[in-house]
Nucleic acid binder design. Structure first.
Lengths: 243, 243
DNA sequence: ACCTGAACACCGTTCAAGT
DNA sequence: ACCTGAACACCGTTCAAGT
C-alpha cells in the first residue's frame, strides 16, 4: 500500500484509524517521493483491530489481516503486543474507556437510566464486544472504573452492599442480554441464513403464537425494548429501596 | 482405540456418549476378537460434540478431535453433516429440545418462573450455548417450540401481542444475560487469568466501591441472582397487566 | 530496536481413491 | 454407501536472520 518505506525515518501522522482517514494518508503517501508510515504502537494496533472488527466482525480478525491493515507483516505486531488475547483485552479496554458517566449530582434513577442507555448504545455499535467479554472477562481498569461508578451511585442512593450487588448484577445482565440479542439478531448474522420472517410465517401451522408475533419479532428495535425493560427494573429497585 | 474394524459388519451398540459408557464400550471391544463400532450417525456426532464442548469448551471442539472422539477420521463426519456450522445448529437444537415446559394449567407467573429457572439451569450446564447462539441464532424447531410456548402463556394470561413481545424480549434477555455472565465468570474462563478477588482488592485505592463489594462479586451465585431479578420482572409485568 | 521470511502445529474443507 | 489420505488455504506463534 505505501509504495516505499525508508527505514528509520518514521514520521508519525496523527490520525484515527477509520477508513476515510486511512485513504487520506495513502493519498498523501503516494504524493511523496520518499514515503513513510506511522510508527507501530500498541494503541494503533488496538484501534485498527476495533475498526476491523466493527466492519468485518470479530471472527474475520486475524493477525495476518490486521498486519496488512497496518501495512506491516503479522509478525511485527508481536513487538508491541503479547499475543492475540492481549489485543482482545485492549479492544475491551478501548470500548469500556469510551463509556460516559453521568452527572454526579443527578438523581440515582436518572443516572442508572443514563448509564444503561449509553452502555447499550456503545455495545450495539461494537457488536463483537459481547463475544469478547465471554472469552476474556472484563477486569481492565476502565471496566473497573465503570463498575465502581455504578455501584457508587447505588450505595449513595441508599442501597445496602448486598442489594447494590443484586442491582448491579441485574442491570448488567439486562444490558448484556439485550446487547447479546442485538448482536445475535439475524441482521447481524451471516447472510446465508434464511429470511427469518419467512421462516416464522412458514411455521404457522405448528407455532401459531410465534407466527402471530412474527412482525414484532422480525423488526424488533432492541434499543427501545431495552429502555422498556430498564424502566421495569428501575421501578422494582425503587420499590425495594422504599421498603 | 478400537483395535480392529471389520468393514461392513457394523453392529450398533446403544449408548450415550458420556465418558463412562465409552470406556465400557472400549473394554467390551478389546475383549472381542472381531471388534465393531456403532455406525456413525448425525445424532451420534451431535451428542459427541455436546459432550466434548461440555468438558473442554466450545473453542477446543474441532472436526479432527471430534472424529477422534468417535473413533473415525475427521473427513468421515462430512458424510453425515454438512459442515461445522451444521454441527453447531445441531448442538443448539439438542439443548433447546431438552428444555422442559410447565404444566399447561399452571398460573402464568408460576409458568414463567418455572421456564426461566429451568432454562437458566440448562444454559449454565452447557456454558457454550450463549456463544453458539451468538454465531448461529436460534431458529430450529425446538427453539420455535419453546418460544411459542412462552408467548402462549403470556397471551393466555391476557397480555396484548405487543406487550407479550415486550415481555418475551425482556425475559429472554434476562435469561441470556445471566447465562452470559455465568459463562463469562472467571471460574469458566481460562486458568491463566489472574485471581479476580486479589485483583479487585488490589485496586482498592482507585475503586473503593468495587473493593467493598469484592466478596459479593467474587462468589456470586448466578442462579439465585437470576431468580431475584426474575421476581422483579414478573412483578413489573403483573403490574402492567393489571393497569 | 524493530521488522521479516520461513517454519511449526494446528484449523475447516475438498476430492479422488479405496473397500 | 461410507471411510480415508493427501492436499489446499487458512490460522496463531516462534525464532533466527536481517537492517
Amino acid at each position: 500500500m505505501c509504495t516505499a518505506y525508508v527505514y528509520g525515518v518514521n514520521v508519525y501522522v496523527q490520525r484515527k484509524l477509520v477508513k476515510f482517514d486511512l485513504e487520506i494518508l495513502l493519498t498523501y503517501d503516494e504524493g511523496m517521493t520518499t514515503t513513510q508510515r506511522p510508527t507501530l504502537t500498541r494503541d494503533r494496533i488496538i484501534e485498527a483491530a476495533v475498526a476491523y472488527a466493527d466492519e468485518h466482525g470479530i471472527d474475520a480478525l486475524s493477525m495476518r489481516k490486521l498486519g496488512a491493515e497496518l501495512d506491516v507483516e503479522a509478525m511485527s505486531l508481536y513487538n508491541h503486543v503479547a499475543n492475540k488475547d492481549d489485543i482482545y483485552d485492549g479492544m475491551i479496554e478501548y470500548v469500556f474507556a469510551s463509556l460516559p458517566l453521568p452527572d454526579p449530582d443527578a438523581d440515582w434513577q436518572d443516572s442508572i437510566r443514563f448509564i444503561g442507555v449509553a452502555g447499550m448504545d456503545t455495545f450495539t455499535s461494537h457488536g463483537w464486544i459481547v463475544a469478547l467479554l465471554m472469552i476474556r472477562g472484563n477486569f481492565g481498569p476502565s471496566a473497573l472504573r465503570f463498575t465502581d461508578a455504578v455501584i457508587g451511585i447505588l450505595t449513595n442512593a441508599g442501597f445496602s452492599d448486598e442489594d447494590a450487588h443484586h442491582a448491579w448484577q441485574m442491570l448488567s445482565s439486562h444490558t448484556m442480554g439485550y446487547a447479546f440479542q442485538a448482536a445475535a439478531n439475524p441482521e447481524g448474522l451471516q447472510k446465508e441464513h434464511v429470511d427469518v420472517e419467512a421462516a416464522l410465517t412458514a411455521a404457522a401451522d405448528h407455532f401459531p403464537n410465534v407466527a402471530r408475533l412474527a412482525p414484532f419479532l422480525a423488526q424488533c428495535e432492541y434499543g427501545s425494548e431495552y429502555a422498556f425493560g430498564l424502566e421495569i427494573i428501575i421501578d422494582g429497585l425503587a420499590a425495594r429501596l422504599a421498603s
